[in-house]
Write a protein that binds this DNA or RNA. Structure first.
Length: 262
DNA sequence: CGTGGCTCCTGGCGGC
DNA sequence: TGCCGCCAGGAGCCAC
């Protein structure tokens, strides 16, 4: 689930529910999510603090604590956040739970435990450490073209590479290429300058629509390929049955009529 | 640069 | 029903 749009809404959700409350206790059910930090040190850094603000870069959510450090959340394939008030309730697949002093809780839910939690003093340090490219929602056209115009290999692989640009994953790369009428295996090297401009615009648009819809809890438009990502799904435009191929080990959906390989 | 394979985990689904 | 293999919206590591 969690690519850029979902992480953006997790951030908004955290802001809406969990800011400025003292964290009484952290329950760490799955210590393996903690990266480069001892469980005791983690506890010490969090206990008695509160969340002040959030920032997002790509698929990472940075949560500012009132000790000038940032908690870094990455949601993997199945991570999410859930806020609740009921004291007795404990949600299935809770891996880390923040207990606030007013009796409410924020849980990091993650069935597959692919999520990761770090600490950093500065966001930029973390971005450098992970070698993350610019955020897909912030990036400008010039930078985008610099990064992609000479990129070899499949366009889908390039869009998913977090070191080139950060935030687009398997699902949204398919969506972007679908609207651009580009086959996921086609290389950026084979695309015209105009096509790159178009892909840039489409990417921004797709992400914006996805963020808005996610925040409102609505479904994506039927003109998107994502809702048709099912067995026997059809292209909403040409009504052709969608095809799937493996690219970089991930399943890619595309329309064989609208997206011809070059 | 680039690719493909394997790994970390758990649950759901289809096939036999 | 029971078991098995495969698949899943991420990403790091390694060999080539």
């Amino acid at each position: 689930m969690p690519e850029l749009p979902e992480v953006e809404s997790f951030g908004k959700y955290l802001v809406k529910t969990s800011l400025n409350k003292e964290i009484k206790k952290v329950k760490i059910e799955s210590p393996q999510l903690l990266q480069n930090i001892d469980i005791n040190v983690f506890n010490k850094k969090i206990k008695g603090k509160c969340f002040l603000n959030v920032k997002r870069h790509g698929k990472y959510l940075f949560v500012l604590l009132n000790n000038n450090s940032w908690l870094v959340l990455h949601f993997g394939m199945t991570g999410s956040l859930k806020f609740y008030k009921d004291n007795a309730k404990k949600l299935l697949y809770s891996r880390v739970i923040f207990d606030f002093d007013d009796g409410s809780h924020l849980a990091f839910i993650d069935p597959r435990k692919f999520g990761k939690i770090h600490f950093t003093q500065k966001i930029d340090d973390f971005i450098n450490y992970k070698k993350l490219g610019p955020d897909a929602f912030d990036i400008n056209l010039k930078t985008f073209k610099n990064l992609y115009s000479k990129r070899r290999g499949a366009s889908k692989t390039a869009l998913m590479n977090q070191n080139v640009m950060s935030g687009v994953g398997n699902i949204y790369s398919d969506e972007i290429l679908y609207h651009a009428h580009v086959h996921p295996k086609t290389s950026f090297l084979n695309l015209s300058d105009g096509k790159l401009n178009e892909i840039f615009k489409i990417m921004k648009n797709v992400l914006k629509i996805a963020i808005d819809r996610d925040l409102k809890g609505e479904n994506l438009p039927d003109s998107f390929i994502i809702p048709h990502r099912i067995k026997n799904g059809e292209c909403p435009e040409s009504k052709t049955k969608l095809k799937t191929i493996k690219i970089s080990g991930r399943t890619s959906y595309y329309c064989p009529v609208c997206q011809k390989e070059i």
